[in-house]
Write a protein that binds this DNA or RNA. Structure first.
Lengths: 344, 344
DNA sequence: ATCTATATCCGAAACGTTTTGGATGGTTAA
DNA sequence: TTAACCATCCAAAACGTTTCGGATATAGAT
């Protein structure tokens, strides 16, 4: 690879001048610049990014760590988010360093990436209670931005982009109530997930608003994967056969719920309504199509990246805590406008 | 951030000794090492990755560039591949630099990443004819590995991992023929895509084997997206209503084909069989579920990453051109074992 | 002729590591 | 007693940039 030095030797100018010529400084003679540019082009010069990063102490790179237990690496939420973030990152002229971390030592990836100065800022997703990643980043003063605020009872003293999931689950629950459902189960995420509280609150609030009793037995937890949805649904339906609707807190669990319902010989939508959250690509094509709450991943990614870059460049943030309004997407799984074309 | 220098000052040893102590060299007194380690721990020392990269001329990072036209950034193929590669990369202790490139200048991302020494090796996907990326990487002698070989009539003189798509499409076509279909259309990818030739060959071979005529009119091209599948199917079915089956060369186009068929008032599977390729997550949940050919993305990612890392570390490659056998996945969209539960 | 301003250039330091090639002092073998 | 050896340490160079603070020369002003 050609270096500045090579161009300097070939043109007879100093490394400094070559560097400044290529960087567009105006204290270099136009003729000189042309010569240098010609030689640089001829040699196929490409600046060494690493050296540049070391000297200028910035990398023009954002980092994101995705969990990848053997079980979870194909998590649709992360793959959608990753695409949204990747898209936005590219459009801002940054690169994206993805560290799929094996679960053994959660923080090591962050230390390597952040402490090792590999990125100018990081994006954190799926916030947990007392999230150690946030604590670490705040302590070491590194730029970061979070997809999803803290739990309702914790402070969110950092920039974030989140969807108002209380509102989202509220809409979904209202919709079910409007369809006549009175016994509605809910499958929450594990309680250490930060947004769990918001989703529960949305569910409770909708019940209260409709003067329906809140039954703690109707609330269970699942692991955000399809299996979790299956198990949780089985438990709910065997203990509470009076349930006519199940609100799952993400699409993966909703799909699991549909599996269980169908396996029990019931009809999704007609016998038991099911709703999800996220609107992953699968949701539209589920059988029956899944009523859910849309997370605008592209928009989320865009906001995250813009916020983070402003933070890095020390520009004014504007609104640094962005709460997006979710959109209810009504499909057949909740039994509304049921075309009744399913045969058992 | 604490540097080696800080530890050196605090312990009274030289930077060299500190470096060597932490790196585990055996020419440092055990006592000294303990002191240094203690101080390093106390200061929360984290080696500066960029400096280390510059000095040692390696990054322990792999690169992948994903296309992200506004239209295509949510390409399921890439998101599945990305997950597979990310997973494997993490397990090998490497990081992954993802550059979602905006389409304007295709090679610029490669030049920046590769020429700029940001990565030790890159993964290329969706090979095209006369692929300029491969030419560039071969010319500058950088380590790379390819997901998908060259077109049949071009040499594949580089390490790759590919699925035998001739065999895959052959299996699919055979299966359709076995179900009694005699007029089978095929939606190929654009002809500049390298694997297009293999898929066409698989189709042709299956026809020949069954003594069926090859009808050039039954062959059309689509843009690998759902819209392409829709348009192509519309053209096929309006010009050749005798078709009873359509082989789409990826799942996205197959889903589009299903849309069109249903929009024309026909039943997928019963009236017109449809098959895909890739087995993206959606395929299983399509309506009806899509018969397709599985691409084992995780396995592909694993092979790609292992191959690339061996290349980087100059270890013997073993088999450097890996052709995986695809697996036919039979679902309802081709009308086999049709439960006939669909109502029109 | 001297001074100032301007245009153009460059040496050297710095970014934080790793590694090379000794230096130092003590211990052992002859 | 001297040479050889070992254990332990370190100064300095190198990786390839960017940038600070001048240096030099030429032109114009006085």
């Amino acid at each position: 690879m050609a270096k500045l030095k090579d161009i300097a030797q070939k043109t007879g100018f100093s490394i400094t001048t070559v560097s400044r010529a290529l960087a567009g400084y105006d204290d270099v003679n136009p003729d000189t610049r042309r010569q240098i540019e010609a030689v640089a082009m001829g040699l196929g010069y490409q600046p060494n990014g690493v050296a540049r990063q070391l000297r200028s102490q910035k990398t023009d790179t954002l980092g994101i760590v995705i969990p990848s237990d053997d079980t979870r690496f194909s998590d649709d939420f992360f793959s959608e988010l990753l695409m949204g973030v990747g898209y936005a990152t590219a459009h801002m002229g940054y690169d994206l360093l993805v560290s799929a971390q094996t679960s053994d030592d959660e923080m090591s990836a962050y230390r390597r990436i952040v402490g090792g100065n590999r990125v100018d800022g990081v994006i954190i997703a799926r916030t947990r209670r007392h999230d150690p990643r946030i604590a670490y980043l705040q302590e070491c003063g590194h730029a970061f931005v979070v997809a999803g605020r803290s739990a309702p009872d914790e402070p969110s003293n950092f920039p974030y982009v989140d969807v108002d999931s209380q509102d989202g689950i509220g809409q979904v629950t209202n919709h079910l109530i409007g369809l006549g459902h009175r016994h509605i189960g809910i499958i929450l995420p594990p309680s250490e997930i930060a947004y769990t509280g918001y989703r529960l609150a949305g569910y409770q609030q909708a019940l209260i608003h409709a003067h329906l009793p809140y039954q703690p037995h109707y609330v269970v937890h699942g692991d955000l994967r399809r299996e979790g949805g299956r198990d949780a649904t089985y438990n709910l339906l065997t203990h509470h056969p009076q349930l006519t609707a199940i609100v799952a807190c993400n699409d993966a669990m909703a799909l699991g719920a549909m599996n269980t319902i169908q396996a029990m010989g019931l009809r999704v939508g007609a016998d038991v309504a099911v709703t999800g959250f996220d609107n992953i690509a699968l949701a539209e094509h589920a059988h029956p199509p899944l009523t859910t709450v849309r997370q605008p991943f592209v928009e989320i990614g865009q906001h995250l990246v813009e916020l983070l870059i402003r933070l890095i460049q020390q520009k004014p943030l504007g609104e640094s805590q962005i709460l997006l309004s979710p959109m209810l997407i009504i499909r057949q799984s909740c039994g509304a406008d049921l075309p009744r074309t399913e045969s058992p």
